[in-house]
Design a protein around this nucleic acid. Structure first.
Length: 911
RNA sequence: GCCUGGGUGGCGGAAUGGUAGACGCAGGGGACUUAAAAUCCCCUGGAGGUUACUCCGUGAGGGUUCAAUUCCCUCCCUGGGCACCA
């Protein structure tokens, strides 16, 4: 055995042994309890980052622990391989996206293997493989047949950087989710959608049936689905209009409202600027120009501004009127900037007395404010004197025969009456929109549809699938738009129906489609006769534990749930939900280091070409005080990597470095840690151990280099412990006949500690608090290292030492498997830890006969007395009263009450 | 504004009604060494005291309880998400 711990030598060795022994290759085994453990598969960017390492280290720990606990564990890995970065890299380097992608996969796979994760690599695939996306295209065709995939012309979010459309949920605060600095624009385009709204109710319903998910994620999904109950109300138009586009007759405006009880107070109508009615209603009413200008202006205003609190409520009269269906009164129709096209019907009945936005709008344009809900016990509301809308419940006024009814009751009654009168009726509304899946990009799964001049849109027949991406596509920086559209050989094809000239759909699918079913596909091993190996998918699904980042709380996790239900309804899956338990692991954060600059600069301190006269850094402008003009400041020298900074001084100008906020690791902040470099220095086991020890899995990890050193030192100490004792242990041989409990006190104590550690570690593993599970192992190490087997009965004590070390290696194995396997073997064992079962504590060793009796007086700790278990209250009191410190505190006082918790504490209440 | 987590030593974090600060890091002292690194041992919430021990202390204030970091109420700070949702 080497005296020094050398992870660089032993780790690759054990990785080879596991691979050769097929340690992680698993099969479906009906009758054996399965455990499907899945980590979110990575986008093959080329290099692992610490976030990956944390995610996969948690996954590997659980996988190995569950395996040792007797489960048949499925633990696969693959690649979310379609997507924009490959295409951007292709354009930059003039290489094909496939080449770039597969090179990245190769490197990341090497990195994953170097970390010793227990993946069944036979199941690996990349989603850009036609053998994978073939089945996705098949499902698309089936969804098309069922009306779950459809094409629609609509306003879409357009990212000018991606050069493609985005789904609503991919727009974050008006910016592209991929390009936080790029504003999303609105375009009217014909696009493909998946009808996720058809499953809105079930998706919502099941948020109450997923007890293994963090409540936070369920809440986000419920909010995203956004169910509300209300009514549709028809407002007849004063005259009939014709839709220039469709030729349809329009005689009414239908609105959705949750406050149908306020319908008598609807004094005008507001419609969204994107609404087709804007053009139709304003035509020939003398308002056409104004309305068109207004709509154009609102549409081009950025979403950030439209959503901001102080966005001024503006509108323009369309020139048209409709009638309040209850009062028959004529009411004007406005286009209003605050009305959203994609919520409800895109039209709002405006009740200024009871909605703040309508109230503000009415005040600006001098519209009537008519209160219809009177608050209890308040002076009568008057539209002329109200200062804000009254939005609470109350009693109906100005509402014909409903006068005096409670608003809540009227709300249900009016909904029923509207239905009876054919003027609308009760309804349920959802905020969620259908999933826009069209992408005008090359590197994605082609949508399997052909357009024929004679037959129209024809789905590609199943026998012709997959529709493979053409390889002879040129990538160079001059290309704008979708490179696929330029692949003429590919675009021009024959119609599957009439064999005539036809063209292929050039849109590809959103990459979230691939990640919506990859976990189902993992259940089969290179299965190519169908989408799934049915027996395998029925055995393994659902995923028992899914682990990934919180950033996918809505997007990926909602789509995957939807897709699972679609596949179920197509008869391909038997499960309702894909993921039984979900863990959203915390980010890895680290403080950034930046040069603060010299602050405010006087004009004479600014050198030419706009540099700081003191240090030469860029001189910029900054608004120091709101409302005052910007001042010139030295911007400093930006961010630095930790190793560039010596003694907290800027390496360029020597200013004292400012330690920034602890935040998510990013290249731009230069606060990243390269996992590969760490592995080179400390080994995979140390990196894994630190990731699991630094914080509970769902919380952030605050990265410190010292913390990593601590983990490394712990492993070195274990190595040294085994090195010190192994020869004596091997000489003594295996002999399990000792009864350590009846031996000397220090032997019994260590034996108890060994068993306590098993108990604690097991409990903590099952509760997912891995940091404290590691603590219990460190405590066990501490006890072992202070135990000297060369004193007293050497044979017994050496056997005890062996028990202790072997227990430690066994329970530490899922955390640092290389080190544990190596030391296990060095102690003379021939089997592998990877196949061993998780130990159970000896119940006899957990029994305690002595305890520390805690004595409190008025709840304050006054003494601790070592006592025998099972002490009666009477004896406890006697014992307490004999303690000098207790006596002192009781002097001249009377014990009024005694609280005794057996084997724990005695509290004496005195007065 | 709404919905959510969270606030404990110098730091990461333990303890979910019963001994606050496990475990690790950092720091201090000592051993080994020509020296340093590494390693090992001891100390380490604050204040007082020679010791025994005492007082204070889990964001702030109140409450429930024999007993509160833990339960309840009010407030402050902070991370995350959503936001004109009719």
């Amino acid at each position: 055995m080497e005296e020094k711990y050398q992870p660089g030598v032993i780790e690759p060795k054990w990785q080879g042994i596991w691979e050769a022994g097929k340690s992680f290759e698993k099969e479906a085994a009906p009758g054996r309890q399965k455990y499907y453990l899945l980590e979110m598969f990575p986008y093959p960017s080329g290099r692992l980052h610490m976030g990956h390492v944390r995610n996969y280290s948690i996954g590997d720990l659980v996988s190995r622990y569950k395996e040792m606990s007797g489960f048949n564990v499925l633990h696969p890995m693959g690649w979310d391989a379609f997507g924009l970065p490959a295409e951007n890299a292709a354009i930059e380097n003039r290489t094909h996206p496939a080449k770039w992608t597969y090179q990245n996969i190769e490197n990341m796979k090497r990195q994953l293997k170097r970390l010793g994760y227990s993946y069944d690599w036979r199941r690996e695939f990349a989603t850009c493989d036609p053998k994978y996306y073939k089945w996705e295209q098949m499902i698309f065709v089936k969804m098309l047949e069922k009306g779950l995939a459809y094409k629609s012309r609509s306003w879409v979010n357009w990212c000018p950087r991606c050069n493609t459309v985005l789904a609503n949920e991919q727009v974050e605060g008006g910016y592209c989710w991929r390009h936080p600095d790029t504003l999303v624009e609105q375009k009217l385009l014909s696009q493909w959608f998946f009808k996720i709204t058809a499953y809105a109710e079930e998706l919502l319903d099941y948020t109450n049936k997923l007890p293994g998910w963090p409540e936070k994620v369920l809440v986000m999904q419920r909010n995203w689905i956004g169910k509300s109950t209300g009514a549709l109300i028809h407002f007849p138009l004063e005259k009939e209009y014709i839709d220039g586009g469709t030729g349809e007759k329009i005689d009414r405006i239908i609105v959705y409202t949750t406050r149908q009880d306020t319908v008598y107070g609807a004094t005008f109508m507001s419609i969204a600027a994107e609404h087709p009615l804007c053009e139709i209603l304003s035509k020939g009413a003398g308002q056409e120009g104004k309305v068109a200008d207004f709509c154009r202006r609102v549409r081009t205003e950025d979403k950030i501004k439209r959503a901001s609190d102080d966005y001024l409520k503006e509108g323009v009269f369309t020139g048209a009127y409709c009638r309040n269906p209850m009062t028959g009164k004529q009411i004007p129709i406005y286009v209003a900037n605050f009305v959203l096209m994609d919520y409800g019907k895109g039209c709002v009945m405006a009740v200024p007395a009871h909605d703040q936005r309508d109230f503000d709008f009415a005040r600006v344009y001098g519209l009537e404010i008519l209160p219809v809900v009177q608050p209890e016990g308040e002076p009568k509301l008057d539209g002329k004197t109200m200062t804000e809308a009254y939005v609470e419940e109350g009693t109906m006024i100005n509402s014909a025969e409903y006068e005096g009814m409670k608003s809540g009751q009227f709300r249900s009654e009016i909904a029923v009456r509207l239905a009876q009168d054919g003027k609308g009726g009760p309804t349920v509304n959802y905020r969620i929109r259908d999933w826009l899946i069209s992408r005008q990009r090359y590197w994605g799964a082609p949508i399997p549809v052909i357009y024929c001049e004679k037959c129209g849109m024809v789905p590609v027949p199943e026998k012709d699938l997959p529709v493979e991406l053409p390889l002879n596509v040129a990538f160079d920086p001059s290309i704008t738009g979708n490179p696929l559209a330029g692949a003429e050989d590919w675009v021009n094809t024959k119609c599957p129906k009439c064999r005539g000239e036809a063209k292929r759909e050039t849109d590809t699918m959103d990459t979230f489609v691939e990640s919506s079913w990859y976990f189902d596909r993992f259940t089969g091993v290179n299965y190519d006769r169908a989408m799934f190996d049915q027996k395998a998918v029925d055995y393994w699904m659902p995923v028992d534990q899914y682990i990934g980042g919180i950033e996918h709380a809505v997007l990926h996790l909602l789509y995957a749930r939807f897709f699972t239900k679609v596949l179920r309804d197509l008869g391909l899956l038997k499960v309702d939900e894909p993921f039984t338990n979900l863990l959203t692991q915390g980010m890895v954060i680290k403080e950034s280091l930046a040069c603060p600059g010299h602050g405010k600069l006087n004009p004479d301190q600014i050198a030419k070409d706009n540099k700081c006269g003191i240090c030469g850094a860029t001189a910029g402008e900054r608004v120091v005080q709101e409302g005052k003009p910007a001042v010139r400041v030295c911007m400093g020298h930006g961010y630095f990597y930790t190793e560039e900074v010596k003694e907290m001084k800027c390496p360029v100008c020597g200013l004292k470095i400012e330690a920034g906020r602890k935040e998510k690791m990013s290249k731009s902040k230069k606060n990243i840690i390269d996992p590969e470099e760490l592995i080179r220095k400390f080994g995979a086991d140390t990196v894994r151990l630190f990731c699991l020890f630094a914080a509970p899995p769902d919380k952030e990890i605050d990265w410190t280099d010292e913390g990593v050193m601590g983990a490394y030192r712990f492993l070195n100490r274990i190595w040294a412990l085994v090195y010190k004792h192994r020869e004596k242990i091997m000489e003594a041989g295996k002999d399990d006949t000792f009864d350590f409990l009846s031996g000397p006190e220090d032997e019994a104590k260590l034996w108890r500690k060994i068993n306590l550690s098993i108990r604690d570690a097991t409990e903590r593993m099952d509760k997912w608090i891995f940091n404290t599970a590691i603590s219990s192992m460190m405590e066990l190490y501490n006890e072992l290292s202070s135990f000297d087997p060369s004193q007293g009965d050497r044979k017994t004590r050496t056997a005890l030492m062996r028990k202790g070390i072997e227990t430690l290696l066994t329970i530490l194995n899922p955390f640092t498997p290389h080190l544990c396997e190596e030391l296990w073997r060095e102690m003379g064992n021939r089997d592998l830890l990877v196949g061993r079962t998780w130990p159970k504590p000896d119940p006899r060793a957990l029994l305690v006969s002595k305890f520390q009796l805690v004595i409190q007086i008025n709840g304050k700790l006054r003494a601790r007395i070592e006592s025998d278990c099972g002490l009666s209250e009477e004896d406890a009191v006697k014992l307490a009263l004999s303690h000098p410190n207790v006596k002192e505190h009781l002097q001249g006082k009377q014990v009024r009450k005694k609280v005794y918790v057996p084997d724990k504490l005695l509290n004496l209440v005195v007065g």
